[in-house]
Amino acid sequence: MALAVGCRARPGKARDNKTGSWRVFKPSFDHEKCTQCGTCKTICPEGCISEDTDGKFIPDYQYCKGCGLCAEECPGEAITMKQEEK
């Protein structure tokens, strides 16, 4: 018999929640200064930074909360936080 107690949700359904709207400061990536170390991608608490086909690191602004952790930890100082105008 199938159990039907509790609540169920589809894996990764949190994607419906676009946390990018929380952002006040927006990280801006300077791909000239980037050394491709991948620190930003590893330490992003959202996991919203990915590499595009050219190997450039791009955050998904739909989910980026603008915490600034990537800009703080980037060893090449290639990421700067700028106040976002909405």
Binding site: A14, T19, P45, E46, G47, K65, C67
Partner: peptide, 21 residues
């Protein structure tokens, strides 16, 4: 990536980063 975007942790949450890692 097995811990997806869209969770409601504070910006810069240490625990969210821990879960991902």
């Amino acid at each position: 990536e097995l811990f997806d975007c869209g969770h409601r942790a504070c910006g810069g949450c240490g625990a969210a980063l821990a879960a991902r890692l």
